[in-house]
Design a protein around this nucleic acid. Sequence first.
DNA 1: AGGCCCACTGCAAGCGCTTACAATCAGGCC
DNA 2: GGCCTGATTGTAAGCGCTTGCAGTGGGCCT
Lengths: 342, 342
Amino acid sequence: MPTTDPSERRATIEDVAEAAGVSVATVSRALRDLPNVATSTRLRVEQFAQQLNYRADPNASRLAAGRSGAVAMAVPVFNSWYFSEIVAGAEAVFADAGYDVLISAIPGPHRRALFVSQTAYQRRADGIIMVDLAMGQGERDVLLRAGVPTVTTGAKSADFPGVIIDNVAVGRTAATHLAGLGHQRIALIAGQNEDPLHFTVPEDRQRGFERELEAREIFFDPSLEAAGNFSVAGGYEAMVGLLKLDHPPTAVFAMSDEMAFGAIQAAREYGLGVPEDLSIMGVDDHDLAAAFGLTTISQQVDHQGPLAARLLLALLDDHQPDELMVEVPTVLVERTTTGPPV
Amino acid sequence: MPTTDPSERRATIEDVAEAAGVSVATVSRALRDLPNVATSTRLRVEQFAQQLNYRADPNASRLAAGRSGAVAMAVPVFNSWYFSEIVAGAEAVFADAGYDVLISAIPGPHRRALFVSQTAYQRRADGIIMVDLAMGQGERDVLLRAGVPTVTTGAKSADFPGVIIDNVAVGRTAATHLAGLGHQRIALIAGQNEDPLHFTVPEDRQRGFERELEAREIFFDPSLEAAGNFSVAGGYEAMVGLLKLDHPPTAVFAMSDEMAFGAIQAAREYGLGVPEDLSIMGVDDHDLAAAFGLTTISQQVDHQGPLAARLLLALLDDHQPDELMVEVPTVLVERTTTGPPV
DNA sequence: AGGCCCACTGCAAGCGCTTACAATCAGGCC
DNA sequence: GGCCTGATTGTAAGCGCTTGCAGTGGGCCT
């Protein structure tokens, strides 16, 4: 008397083995295209597997093989153009490579630490991508000791390969563009005042920006720096604050296009013409930058996700990638929101 | 002679058991807060677990328990405001509930079928959320037979619980608003001409839109329908096409804000004032709708992800949710891109 | 004091797969 | 024809956890 009617449960490797008249070991090997399986056997096994709708239980194979077949991506938030673009690009590559993709939003340092220790000690994923999430020394150590292949994005890290852009150059380019147009009072809409996650990106952009102004002997008034939180609403608020100043700026460099969009909205509501009364530029070359006519600095976001993914796949395949640090070029895209001061 | 220095490998449940001087069964029970464990024992086990940095291997526990501790979300694409918002909202809820979140982009019907059969036969996930992905009968059957708890979003389905909006009403609201302002030639920027995934959402919106016009005895000229592909670029192209018409529209209803943004851009480039020369409205209440001053129909996207997630969690917890179909209200948000025709 | 009940805990059998190692077998060679 | 070789396949021991079932012992009742 048979235990259970196989058609009533998911097929197991044993069902396939039985059907094909071979051992489970052979089925396992055949289905994973391992060598040392006669072609005829492989074909037969594949046929029965298909017939039975058999799929290896990932949990079982992971447990046995010690690999998880999944990668994890951690991003600060999802509902932001930049991050969803990165995730989308990487996901496509991972899906093609047969990996599952786990995602995790990291609202704060506590979650980041939790994420790191979970993936490290729990091997939920074979490798991880940290998007714009600078880790502390402790977290880096955990990952390194656990030997979890890790790729970073945005924040350059000496410990892990990653795809980066030259954020100092970004700041410099912005300052060059705006100062080149003749602006003297240039405001900066940056990230958060209190940044629990310690993004390094804003710092770098700010450094480049200030240095370039300095080099041009343009005074950067600290009151012209505002926190925009990398959101549309934040950019709006920041701009409102700047416009209330006794001596408002004639140009604004927002560290992201989304903040720039908010800034444009605020300027318009104040009855200011952009760029006649106020020049505004951003960073990213957001999907909607063209619709706003926004001058911005493109960082080819659509390339970054796939690049990071391929970097990680190389690591997982255990062959060192050609270059550990991939730098994506940035380029000024001039549109119509910047112009000379009146 | 000990086998391996425990500190050199990930701690296993056995290490904890040994350290705490109990059996692995007790450790397992203690750590999962099962009943029938003395409080003192539980405490001691927890302490040692923490000390050893122990985390249950998810693959092992899933294999043994037959649950995967993960949910999968399938969306058509990630880099679209609407979808990333849904994913973000749902992920937060799942993360709080201790579930891993797998994501899958579904570029076409083939991938959709693959996704369905994988989750069904491979139990990678305990449950799934299909975002705006109408399934074919075959796929629904597979899911139902396999008993995979499933929640749908956007596309109403008789077979699965879901969160929906009244898309017919959306179309009706748009027509009412625009016709109410006095427009007679109203264009429609819809989805794709050839839609391999068979979204039902655009159909419903269109139906409501046309019906309302009909009720008002306004003729809907078929040449005023254009495909905008639910993207900014698509909306732009669609608008360009409409503006080239011999008898262009005085108002446009775009089925998504992103398409509306593209349409606005096109109108501006053509030197048309919005809304003086052309009224444009969208659907979604996108983050940037306010920045564009876009009149739109809000569908409270930020609520939809969490709602869907909670629905699925209820299913996974095996207690039928209070209501299987959650309808999120839609509401017209009037801004400055619509006005009476000149 | 003897029994019974119940709260805890341990035993051990898997979960479905992978993989080192052993076994088998056909072909080729001397 | 016997022996060696390499290709193929089978055997079986786990992978690390969960869980049904079987103790174990203290408290309480009669």
